[in-house]
């Protein structure tokens, strides 16, 4: 372990600072609040045709002027069409490539379109749109680079099966230990981020199969500031969870391999 540096990487810091200057220079100096800056709501969706319209309408009722981008991850149903009808921009992946690839496509789109902030949410309505300001606020006020909506911080949760709860507990401990701060909900997909994080996420090093705890550790390692805020989440009404069947086992294995390896990697 002696050759592993837990210090903040100076290159990443420099990179961040340069990028921040460039981004700020491009934007008018008048904005004071996130609502005035360009915000994109990112919704990766797979076979959510029956719900996506409602979810988009729900977000619009809270955050009327939000630009929404739905990444249709090769759905077999009319997810893309429904999202388009509901007024979202739609990116269609030619075939199903998984949650992480869909997310990353959204990040790349946001970068290309010049959005300053991205709020990513689940397209199945689990994440309450009422919590968007809570998640976006700290990023917009530059108190952090990435803000994660946690369902556990204030007990605004729903019952979770014991098996999953154990897995979550383990990951929580690992994430908290490695990042040196309390992480209560590392698997949350309700996040807000600034362009510095977007740039980082758009790289090939982004683990697209199951981006989560390992990403947090990577971010921490590269000197990004991560914050958690309490949010409201609803249990899934139908459909498949990301973590079903044997996937949790693979998931834990992957985290077990990825996190130590990320600490050993020297990426520019």
């Amino acid at each position: 372990m002696f050759f592993i540096s837990f210090h903040v990487c100076p290159t990443a810091r420099l990179f961040r600072a340069t990028l921040a200057r460039q981004v700020d220079a491009m934007l008018p100096a008048t904005y004071t609040h996130a609502m005035n800056a360009r915000v994109m709501i990112l919704l990766p969706a797979y076979n959510e045709g029956s719900r996506i319209g409602t979810v988009i309408a729900g977000i619009r009722s809270v955050f009327a002027e939000a630009d929404m981008t739905v990444v249709d991850d090769g759905s077999g149903d009319d997810t893309g069409l429904q999202a388009l009808k509901a007024g979202a921009t739609v990116l269609t992946l030619p075939f199903n490539l998984g949650y992480g690839v869909a997310l990353q496509a959204g990040y790349k789109h946001a970068l290309r379109e010049g959005y300053k902030y991205v709020v990513q949410m689940d397209a199945d309505g689990q994440h309450d749109p009422g919590s968007i300001p809570a998640v976006l606020g700290p990023v917009a006020e530059d108190r952090c680079d990435l803000c994660i909506g946690s369902r556990f911080l204030e007990g605004k949760s729903y019952p979770i099966p014991p098996g999953r709860r154990l897995g979550m507990a383990i990951l929580r401990r690992v994430a908290s230990r490695l990042t040196g701060r309390t992480v209560t909900d590392p698997t949350s997909g309700f996040q807000a981020m600034n362009r510095r994080v977007l740039e980082f996420y758009a790289r090939d090093s982004f683990p697209v199969d199951y981006p989560d705890v390992d990403v947090l550790v990577m971010l921490h390692h590269h000197g990004f500031r991560v914050l958690e805020v309490p949010v409201t989440m609803h249990p899934r009404t139908s459909g498949m969870s990301l973590h079903s069947g044997l996937k949790p086992v693979y998931y834990l294995f992957k985290m077990g391999v990825d996190i130590p390896l990320n600490l050993l990697r020297r990426e520019k």
């Binding site: 739609v90 269609t92 992946l93 090939d204």
Partner: peptide, 14 residues
């Protein structure tokens, strides 16, 4: 992955 994403970005529907 990168190809599929680029394709999706190019064919973005507003």
């Amino acid at each position: 992955k990168n190809l599929a994403q680029q394709l999706a970005l190019r064919n973005a529907r507003k």
